Amino acid sequence: MHAMTLRLSPGDDLRAALDQALRAHGLSAAYVLQGIGSLSVARLRYAGRDEAAELRGDLEILTLAGTLSEQGPHLHMSVSDADGRVFGGHVSPGCIVRTTAEIVVANLPGERYTREHDAATGFAELVIRPA
């Protein structure tokens, strides 16, 4: 395992930047170990919901974790608002960095991640193969 740290800038889309970093570094399997920073917009899909909720304002990233594959990231995040209320869920496109986001990513060179339809869940789920 090799870890690298990414720093995202104001205006970056969190998911898109992580997807771009995966491709730029030629990775086929990586894991977001942790992320902190701030967002001006968070788009989170809550458990059992089909659509993402959009939160706007000064938001702090408390936790960020998930897998990165060639089919795209699968990320979960918790954020707090200016009043300290905490929200969490599946990270959807459109999470916009406010000041910075510092993210530690682990490259797993011996593995290759793909997402394939799983008949049991009905969703595209993680499949792990040797690289």
Score class of each variant (00 low, 15 high):
E51I: 00
D13Q: 10
L62K: 08
T63H: 15
Q34K: 13
Q71L: 09
S69M: 02
T99E: 15
A65I: 06
S38E: 10
D19N: 14
Q20R: 14
E60I: 06
V127D: 01
A21E: 11
T99M: 12
M4W: 01
E54Y: 02
V32F: 00
R115G: 03
Q34R: 15
H2P: 01
I96S: 05
G26T: 05
E102L: 15
V127G: 00
R115H: 13
V86H: 04
I103R: 02
S38H: 05
D13H: 04
G110A: 15
Q71F: 07
G57K: 08
I36A: 14
V79E: 04
F87A: 09
V104W: 00
A124D: 15
E54P: 00
S92H: 15
P130A: 13
D58G: 05
L8T: 00
T114R: 12
A131V: 04
R98L: 13
P10W: 06
E116G: 11
D118T: 01
A21M: 03
M1S: 15
A101G: 12
T121I: 01
T100L: 07
E102N: 08
R43S: 11
D118I: 02
M77H: 06
D13A: 09
G26A: 11
L59K: 08
P10M: 13
A16S: 12
L18K: 04
V91I: 07
E102I: 13
T63M: 15
L44V: 02
L33T: 15
A124W: 11
A21W: 05
A24T: 14
A42G: 03
A16Q: 13
D83T: 10
L22R: 09
L27D: 06
H90A: 14
G84H: 08
G26I: 02
L59E: 08
I103G: 09
E125C: 10
P130F: 06
S78Y: 00
L39E: 07
A53P: 01
I128R: 10
G72C: 06
D83Q: 14
A101D: 13
R129A: 12
S78K: 07
E60D: 14
A16H: 07
A101H: 12
G35S: 07
S92G: 02
Q20K: 11
T100D: 09
P109R: 11
H74W: 11
A17L: 08
A16E: 13
V127R: 02
R85N: 11
R15W: 08
L62Q: 10
R7L: 01
A52S: 13
P10H: 03
E102D: 11
L22T: 04
L14T: 09
T5L: 04
G89C: 12
R23E: 11
T114L: 02
G110H: 10
I128A: 00
E60L: 12
P73D: 09
E125A: 11
D50E: 14
L39D: 06
A131N: 08
H2G: 12
A17F: 02
R7H: 04
V86T: 14
D19Y: 02
M4Y: 07
